[in-house]
Design a protein around this nucleic acid. Structure first.
Lengths: 225, 225, 225, 225
DNA sequence: AATGAATGAGGGTTCATTCAT
DNA sequence: GATGAATGAACCCTCATTCAT
């Protein structure tokens, strides 16, 4: 459950996220790379279906069709392979393939596009997000990871809000950072709830509501036609 | 991380929350009652300091100064005693000692008072909330519990929003339920973040920002003097 | 292979030897004490027949007819139970049941009696001594233990040599401590060798030779008749 | 901890010592020879710093900068390479570069020179001796090796003692073999203790003490001037 | 000759749960 | 009611050894 909002994209995030798993260097041979990948794919699949805690290393090696020992050739623990799963997933998470919005466009449209991108990316990785939520509440290292991811989003959204405030397009009584924290959290939470429960709402409805609340909250004036 | 917002108080919640632990009836003797209480108090303390997963039953019995066998006289498992801990804590959680607001007061003031009450109650039970968050992401039974608690808040806030809409005091383009879900989540998230990290903000700042965003988001008109 | 020699008996040794295993307190119930004793007895037996390294914890629990878990109720590791085995054995090791020699007897007779007592005690615990030798060369904690035991013997023998020197009954050109170290080592080594290999010598021959060498080495004058 | 004493040098030892590792013939190519040597050097270094048991084959191959598979081209096991390490080291151990003593010299001088040579050789290989001690207490094959080395020393010293007895220069009441066993053990033990602990004694002191005790023990008469 | 990935038997360890006292 | 010893399934992890490349 990281913090979302307008202007999702982040070239700086990967390093911070990758940290945890870059400890081991990649295997030297193609064969090794294949095995490693198989393990990561198997791990993701097992994690997603069983949950993090319920997953035994033997579940992963069985799914990857390799022995227990092989696991330790590439990873030192369940945490380590989970970090690797996240690293592999993160590119997609952070670069949701959204066409970059014109910066000078109508603020409400930008916000809407950002929210849509966020929800869409979330959807593609919903199970993983739930997992991250689980693990972040268990393991301090991943708690920090979640925090950093959130801060990245919040920071960017805060700058965007500040920008609107400077242009007289947003409520100047709001503290940009705090507002960003609140609204980013709102959207992130909406997404988590939506993909976590059997929600009958459409994505469009969600995006629309989130956007309207966001726009209202900042007191962004309606587009003058 | 349940959903908060205006009008916090709930007479219906206890039954649903209690379910899990009402399986066993209370001990007949005073001595038994004392032991049971000691176990619950010990459990809360240990859970809060070690976390749910790290807590071994032996940690609890040690802290409660009783034997392993005695634990099973009163509880069947870690989940069961955790539920009991929540039951004991919930009265305070749900009745944050807030003087009931005049229903006909200024909407912004009501919202502010509600938010303040929410943050205050959260503060008193912050560690437990973090625990619940942890456990809810692990155990489906507690996930359901969290959901129910959230729904209670969200439902009440939704009714409040609807009421404002009917009176022409809130943006009618918003779906009341969805808006409540979003804004309640926003506040709940803010609280979780605040008490979870080393936040330098004052509670007053938090309450003010949350209130302003909530009021703005609903497009509640400024008080006419 | 500790250092031996005349005047074997030691009221101070147990504390130092016990250290390693007094970490855990003894079980509260008779049943617990019985189980603990059974484990120690089983451990000694298995250690002696399989050797320290080859002994698996499961060998011990099997021999003691208890489960793996029970082992950990009393001991935290193989080292810990080995220390306990030594503690149980040490009383016999240190108090070889030797009738205390008249201090004013003929020096050569005292030395002979001491040596005989040493060899006899060694014989009763030969397998354990071999084990200690094995473990001391593996684990620094037991290396230290062996050293301390040796120092106790050497110290006492050194005092005895000094006493003889002062009475003009031993070569004054010898450094008492160094001589004690050498001669105690000589006897200890002889014992180790004797009980370790298939030695055809009789104990009497050993005692006689050790004594003669010891007496000669110190230049103790022959008894005047 | 082999048995030492006067008259150290031994043309017969190598065959017996080498046995264990002569199983494999040397590699045919120069490259192979180099790799093999690198492995042996690496093994000695790792054994000495980590100890025998703690040394993993991978430690050795890493230190030798070769792969796990390569190890098996030259050695079949840890024991085998340890034997090879000993073979490489033994020449120095057995031929301590001592100028051969005149056989007809003063007995005490010969003994002193021998002891000095022994301690000096021990010093150069102290770590290896400690290792051998460790391994001999673990592995029967190396126990036998240690015994054979010891017997060689003891045998020679026994012959020397016999010779002195025949010439009326040593106590005839002593069994030459037993006395040699005892005194050789004494010196070996002294050396082990000295290089194993932080001993403040000088080598000279050690040599002098050992010699004086040895001479006294045999009742070798003082040099007539 | 060298590589390094893959193997898997085998051991240690934990801890919720039971039950005789 | 209380005790605490006993249980044993379940899982993690290591590392010597093999083998295809």
């Amino acid at each position: 459950m990281e913090s979302p909002g307008p202007e999702i994209d982040d070239e700086q995030a990967p390093p911070s996220m990758a940290r945890a798993s870059l400890l081991r260097e990649l295997p030297a041979t193609p064969r090794g790379l294949r095995t490693r990948s198989a393990l990561i794919a198997a791990a993701r699949s097992v994690f997603e279906s069983r949950g993090y805690l319920e997953t035994k290393l033997s579940d992963i090696t069985t799914a990857a069709k390799c022995s227990a020992g092989t696991f330790y050739t590439y990873f030192g623990s369940k945490e380590e392979i989970f970090a690797a799963v996240l690293v592999v997933a993160q590119e997609d998470m952070m670069h949701p393939g959204m066409p970059r919005m014109a910066e000078d466009g109508d603020p409400a449209s930008i916000i809407e596009a950002s929210n849509r991108a966020y929800f869409t990316a979330y959807q593609r990785n919903a199970k993983l997000m739930v997992l991250l939520e689980q693990v972040a509440n268990i393991d301090p290292e991943f708690r920090e990871l979640r925090r950093l991811r959130g801060e990245a989003f919040i920071g960017r959204n805060a700058r965007s809000i500040e920008n609107l405030q400077e242009r007289g397009l947003a409520d100047r009584k709001l503290d940009a950072m705090l507002a960003s924290r609140a609204l980013s959290g709102m959207v992130s939470r909406l997404a988590f709830g939506h993909f976590t429960t059997d929600d009958e709402l459409s994505l469009d409805d969600l995006v629309e509501a989130a956007t309207r609340l966001w726009v209202n909250a900042l007191r962004i004036p309606a587009e003058r036609v």
